[in-house]
Structure formats: C-alpha cells, structure tokens
Design a protein around this nucleic acid. Structure first.
Ligand SMILES: [Zn+2]
Ligand SMILES: [Zn+2]
Length: 822
DNA sequence: AGCACGCCGACT
DNA sequence: GTCGGCGTGCTC
C-alpha cells in the first residue's frame, strides 16, 4: 500500500475550539528536509488562505485526504523537542492555542509575514490600458515594472493614494491584476521610534500659521516636535494629545522623519576582557551556597527558595552556583524583573562570565534579539539573563533556573498565553532534571507555603550586609493631620524629617502610587466625575501637558473649567498624584533638588536608569515617584523614606492587596537602612493600627505570612485552593453579559455531571473596572483545584461555547491563578 | 475568525 | 421562478 509523509502542523489564527494539530501532505521535494520544529506555510480553510505554521511531528501514513504543505521555510528545526512538548503543556495549562504557545519560543524577527500582494494577470493591450483612469494606469505601470508581487501599500503610494483605496481590487475584478498571498521572511522594524522635523524650523512655523494645510491635531503634534527638537513617538502622543496615526500622517507628508535612536550601548563595551574573580563568601552565604549546591548535585529535578533580605548578597551565591552548573556543561537561565535588568546588573554578569552570557530583554532591537537568540541556540552562550520571556530561551541541557524577586507580578503574562514564568520554569526543570531556585525577601504566599510544606527546600540568608540596622518606622495618622488643619499631602512629621535630611545633606525617597497631578476631577455643582468616554475610569489631570488623561486607554482632552454635564464652572481637582506631590515638596522646600520619576518622566528605555544614577551620585536631595523608586538600585545616602499614602493599595478589592502592599512597603522601607546609621521611614495612613502596615514596619515577613495564611485558609484563597477567572469582553454590554451567563450555565452543567471535581463558582459579574477601551468586561470567578480533571472540564466548556452564536462578538478567556483581579 | 452550504422571503 | 437574507457547520 502506498505510504506518504504527513506533517502535523500547529496553524496560526485558530480559535481555541478548533485548535489542534492539522495534517498536511509533505511534497516530495521537502521529504528529506522536513523536521519537527520547522516553520511552514500551509493552506487553511475553505479559501485556502496561506497561514503560518510550525511542524509538530512527521509521520508516515496512507491517508490521502489532506492538503499539501506550501512552503518549508527551515531546513533545520528552530524549535526543539523539549519546546514542542512545552507548547502542548502550555496549551493544556493556559487554554491558549498551540501556535500562540509556539510563538513565545521564537524571537519576533523570525515571524514570517504573509501579505496580500498583486501582480499582472497578463500584459494589458493598448486598448485595455487606455480605458483606465490615470491613477489606474499609474498602478498598472508600477506593477509591470516591479520584479515580484507588489503589496497594497506600495501600489497605492505609486498612484499617490492612501492604502485604503479600492482601486487595486477593482483592477483584480476587471481581470487585469491577480491577487495572492506572499510570504516574506523579514519583518519590518518594530516601533520604538523617534521623530524629528524633516523640514526647516521656519517651514514648520509657517505650517503652524497656515490655514488648511494640516489639521488641528497635526498642528498640535508639530508644535510639540518643534519645541522638543526630537522626541519619541510616545512622548509626542503624550504632550500633544494625539494618537499615533496623526504622527504617521505627518511622517507620510514629509513633515516629520522617523529615525532609530540606539538606546542600548554595546553590551560588551567597557567590559574588561579578563573575567573578575569570584568574591569570597561570608559564612552565611557559604552555608546557603553549600545547601543549594548539594541539592543541585542530587541530579534530580528540584526546587529551592532562597529567602534572603535585599542586600544580603544573593547575587554572589547565584554566581557561585552558576560556576558549578557551567562546570558540568549544563546551562542556566536567570530571570530578573524588568526594572532590575539595568546595565549594572548585566555588567556584573558579563564581568564574571564574559561572552558566556546572553541578555534577552524588551529593549533590544529585533535584530539584536535575533542575534542573541541564535547565539544561544548555537551553544555560543550558556547563561541567559533576561525578563519573563527569557524562560523560553533555546538552551539545551539546562541545569539551573534562577528567578530573582520571584513574587513580582511581571512574571505572569497578562495576555494569552497567560503563563507564569515560575510554572514554565518548573516544566523545564522537570524535563532536564534541573534545579529551580526562587529568591526573594518577600516571597509570594504560595511560594513560601510550598517551602513550609516541603515542596521547595528553604534556604535562608537573612543577615544584612555590614549588619545594617532596620530603619525606625514612624506611622503618621492622617486623620489627625486633617483634624488639626493640615490638608497637605505631606504631614508635619514627614516635613520635619525631610528638613532634617536636607540639613544633614542626606537623601530622601518619597513613594506615591498614582501618577499625574490630580487623580480625579469632579463638578462642585452636580457631583459629576469626569470619566473617560471609553473606560469606566476617572480621568487624571496632568499638569505637565495641561490635559485630562486616561491611564487605561490613552484617551486625553485639554483640561477644562466647565462641567460637561451641567456647565457649572466649579470643577474640583482632587486626589494627589506624583506631579502634585512634587509641587507640594517644591513649595515646602524651595531650595531642595527634587527628582520625579514615573512612567511619564521615564519614557525612554534607559531614562529610569539614568535618573537613578544621577540620584545615586547625589545630584538630587529628594526622589519622588511611583513603585519604580522602591525597586532597583541601592542608595547608601538615603536615610529617609516616606510613603505618602499606604491606604489605596491596601484597601483594594483584591485578596492579594495585603500581600502586594506588604511587599512594596517592605522593599521601600528597606531602602532607608542600607548603611551603618539607621534610617527612618514615615508611613502616612488613615489606619495606623492596620496589622499589615505594622508588620511591614517591622520587616517581619514570617509574621505577615502567618496572619495572611490564616486569613486565606479561613476564606479559602490560594494557596489553599486555586482560582480560575473566566473573562468576557466585547463592545456590546448585553452580548458580553449574555455570554457570561450562558458560560455560567455551561459550567454548572459540567460540574453537575462531574460531581467529584471540587469547584465553587461565583455568579458572573462586571469586572472591577467594568469597561476598558470601549470594551465591557464581565467575569466568573471559580475556586477550584488546578488538576487535570478541572482543566479538562474548562477545556470542554471553552470548546463547546466556541460554536455558539452567543459568543460571536465576545471574546472569552480563562486565566488560571490571575495575579490581579481588576 | 472566514467561508460555503442551505433553506425562506420579496421581487423581477 | 431566482436573488439574497444570514443561521449552521467546518477548518487537515
Ligand atoms: Zn456639573
Ligand atoms: Zn480610557
């Protein structure tokens, strides 16, 4: 009987309910080269649209019913067997599609591009040509001169029209052009772009004066760039309140030009060729290292928690372990939160391990990222340092995965595939019999629980370097402050402490968790709160650009003085953000050098870092900012930390609010005591008696852990159960609501017929933020046990609802153990 | 998500 | 009689 080669392919663009490996016939000319892990292009669906795919397996079969592959892109597989298995695992765990999972494992630069293109159907006759409009003639001439098929945009451009013109398709209808999908191997550059004037300043000024030459929004953007000289696209959007399309329009008109500023310095530049010697470990470090290395030597997959306060020298322990693992010729992944992945961190690894280190993070250009990825895959680097997605680095023979600051939320992906890097790390460690090492001073409750119950080994490292003392913590009751006539966001006590620091030439850090100037604006007459038209979120006033902004969808309008509801002219601006706090401090201490740091001041890739560096060099007295000031670099001269309001993050409607607040406060308070003389921390709150605040003040993680686990055991929250969130979003509220209700019924039915699966589901409800960017959001929360029975139940419900018309305009997702419940 | 197939209304 | 509405089902 005849036998064919059949390839099983993960196809792009499938929905969950019809995602599975699809079989394709392998044409003879690809027979010998095709291997699992290679990219292919396949025809899919009734229209045989070309789609990207990844070969999962190659088999012999006599089944002739399948379509043939169109293109085999790679002769050598790009994705290893381990990663193919990981993709299947991710699908089972996170309810994504196979292709979505596989995409995580390839750098963006290897994404093929399939574009609709046009070419001549036949050489047009003179008569045919003369029948056409001048624009059409223009296009036809362009196509006949081109070497290959032409994409829509260049075609439109050739005739001086914009890409939405229907002319190309009209020419197809008349049988002059044919349309096809073409595959391009290299993607256009990503969008971290800068713009500057492509015309002279005088011309720009003339344009601003002119009538009708450019639109009002374009003028606004032009003015911003004229003032700034050059700016990132993001900055222009922020300061002129326009969307990206306005800027691209100006680029197309030849008024702006785009250029790429290399924000990254050459990673190897200035790094000594000779490797730095291992530092000697303190006794405590040595003990921790001994414990960890003997666990690693077991040769079995295992996991450890290194519970160590910041500044206890975790990194030296990591490096010694890495030495051992590399000596065995096994490889290492080190994950760090985005904010800690600074040139200093990187330089430390380069200095110690040289070119054996590869760095993967979002600041690399597409090309740089591809180069590093290739180098890792080829075995040119055995140590990968990076952020969340580096967990998919194409290393072979893994021996160790380190996740530093393991409680950080950035390790959980917020979009599909909704994976947690920690879980992926566990998979990879199991596959390679490697060790997983989690490290933190304030581990997630789940992780510490696992360490307490023996699933992870617990190793401590709790002496601070040089025996630095804990800071004195002063709680300030803001209720008293208001009662005694101080309405400022800065309490008298905090002001005194800042004053002291200024006198002594010591530095202070102030944490405030909201950006902007005022956090909301309301009408004194009718009480109307100004909200974003696309989101159920109050608009924030930004003084820097005098606009009201939405932090969720980017919407902004010019700040106003009249109520849009009742036209009343008393709009109350209230709530304090970083900008207002900065102003308050400047008014209180006019001579102090104040640095503000939030996502608005720090938009360039390295600007945070540069700001922190300046602060570290004593160029400023006071640093005010959001979370980002709590993490990252060490500042020996900081002796005072102020938390302007501990309350808003503490009283969020989220069972993890306490954990998150504790972790943030502990980190920021810890910043005040990193040298011999003890520092001070001032915490402003309406509830000074709150236990979480008290324990954070004492930096007592274990007491916090005890009280928090008691609470979670009582009310059944992780780690005593798992939580699965089902999310529903869409433009129409009734459609979203109906879908959520239907899903709820399906879940109930499924539970009814699987009585042995422990689940508790809540009625569907609007999400905490009921609408974002024009989409309504509903959700169902389930308390469950994340085992294969439960996952199979979820998978079957998701599959069944994909077929129902109720879900036509609604997107549905399942998120296992989401980290924030907003 | 797209696309084809199929079964009812109103319009030449 | 048939053109086109969109409900239903399938994607190797
Ligand atoms: Zn009003
Ligand atoms: Zn918005």
């Amino acid at each position: 009987m005849p036998s064919f080669k059949i390839a099983e392919v993960a196809v792009e663009g499938t929905a969950y309910h019809f995602d599975k490996p699809y079989c394709y016939m392998v044409p003879d000319d690809m027979k010998n080269e095709i291997k699992p892990g290679a990219r292919v292009v396949v025809p899919f669906g009734a229209g045989n649209k070309r789609r990207r795919g990844i070969v999962l397996a190659v088999e012999n079969s006599d089944d002739m019913s399948c379509k043939p592959l169109l293109t085999l892109v790679d002769k050598q597989p790009l994705i290893s067997e381990e990663m193919l298995a990981l993709a299947a695992w991710l699908k089972g765990r996170t309810f994504c599609t196979l292709y979505e999972a596989l995409r995580l494992m390839l750098p963006a630069g290897l994404n093929l591009h399939i574009t609709k293109t046009y070419k001549l159907d036949h050489k047009p006759s003179e008569a045919e040509f003369l029948m056409l409009s001048p624009d059409e003639q223009c296009m036809l001439r362009y196509v006949s001169r081109a070497r290959g098929p032409v994409d829509r945009e260049s075609l439109a451009k050739a005739a001086g029209l914009d890409a939405t013109t229907p002319l190309p398709d009209l020419l197809v209808q008349r049988g002059l052009l044919v349309c096809e999908d073409s595959v391009f191997d290299h993607s256009p550059e990503a969008s971290a772009r800068m713009v500057r004037l492509a015309i002279t300043q005088e011309e720009a000024e003339e344009l601003l004066e002119s009538q009708g030459e450019i639109t009002k929004k374009q003028k606004s953007a032009l003015k911003t760039v004229l003032d700034a000289g050059a700016a990132t696209v993001k900055e222009v959007m922020y300061f002129s309140g326009v969307s990206q399309s306005v800027i691209t329009a100006l680029v197309k008109k030849g008024i702006f030009e785009q250029f790429e500023k290399r924000v990254y310095r050459d990673p190897y530049k200035g790094i000594a060729k000779t490797k730095s010697e291992p530092e000697t470990l303190s006794e405590e470090q040595q003990n921790a290292y001994n414990a960890l290395v003997s666990r690693y030597r077991s040769g079995k997959a295992c996991a450890s928690l290194l519970f160590g306060v910041t500044g206890s020298g975790k990194t030296q322990v990591f490096m010694r372990l890495i030495d051992d693992v590399r000596a065995d010729n096994r490889t290492v992944i080190v994950l760090v939160p985005e904010i800690s992945l600074t040139p200093q961190t990187v330089a430390r690894f380069y200095a110690r391990f040289g070119k054996d280190v590869a760095v993967l993070h979002s600041g690399l250009s597409l090309g740089e990222r591809l180069d590093e990825w290739q180098r890792i895959k080829d075995g040119g680097a055995g140590i990968v340092v990076g952020t969340r997605s580096a967990i998919f680095a194409p290393l072979k023979n893994l021996g160790l995965i380190i996740i530093d600051e393991e409680q950080e939320y950035t390790y959980k992906s917020e979009s599909s595939p909704r994976y947690h890097a920690r879980d992926v790390a566990r998979f990879r460690c199991a596959y390679s019999n490697a060790m997983l090492l989690l490290a933190s001073a304030t581990p997630s409750i789940e992780t510490f629980y696992a360490a307490q119950t023996g699933r992870y080994e617990l190793t401590r490292l709790d002496k601070r370097y040089g025996n630095a003392k804990l800071p004195d913590v002063i709680m300030v009751d803001m209720k008293n402050e208001i009662a005694t006539g101080n309405n400022s966001t800065i309490s008298r006590r905090l002001a005194q402490e800042i004053e002291k620091n200024l006198e002594n030439g010591e530095q202070s850090i102030l944490l405030i968790n909201r950006r902007g100037y005022n956090t909301f604006v309301s009408c004194a007459a009718c009480g109307h709160v100004l909200t974003c038209p696309n989101c159920s979120i109050a608009l924030t006033y930004h003084a820097a650009n005098h606009r009201l902004m939405c932090h969720y969808c980017g919407y902004s309008i010019e700040a106003r003085t009249k109520c849009p509801e009742c036209s009343g002219s008393f709009l109350k601006y209230s709530g304090t953000g970083t900008q207002k706090a900065e102003q308050a401090i400047e008014e209180l201490f006019p001579t102090a050098r104040v640095l503000r740091m939030d996502t608005d001041t720090a938009s360039g890739r390295y600007s945070h870092e540069r700001m922190l560096e300046q602060f570290g060099k004593d160029k400023y007295d006071i640093l005010i900012g959001t979370q980002m000031v709590a993490k990252g670099l060490d500042f020996p001269n900081v002796t005072l930390v102020g938390v302007l309001s501990a309350d808003q993050s503490l009283y969020l409607n989220d069972f993890r609010a306490a954990e998150r607040t504790f972790s943030l406060l502990t980190q920021v308070i810890g910043r005040a005591g990193r040298r011999a003389s003890p520092g001070r921390a001032v915490i402003q709150t309406q509830t000074p008696e709150n236990e979480v605040l008290r324990l954070a003040a004492k930096q007592d993680y274990e007491a916090f852990y005890k009280s928090e686990t008691a609470f979670r055991r009582e009310l059944l929250y992780p780690p005593f159960c798992d939580i699965c969130e089902f999310g529903f979003t869409g433009i129409s509220e009734t459609a979203v609501k109906n879908a959520a209700h239907d899903f709820f019924m399906r879940l109930k039915d499924a539970i009814e017929s699987n009585k042995n699966i422990p689940i508790r589901i809540m009625e569907p409800s609007p999400a905490e933020i009921a609408r974002i960017a024009g989409r309504y959001r509903y959700r169902i929360i389930a308390k469950c046990r994340n085992d294969k029975h439960f996952r199979a139940l979820v998978a079957s419900v998701l599959e069944s609802c994909g077929k129902s018309p109720l879900y036509r305009k609604v997107s549905v997702f399942a998120d296992m153990n989401p980290l924030d419940m907003l």
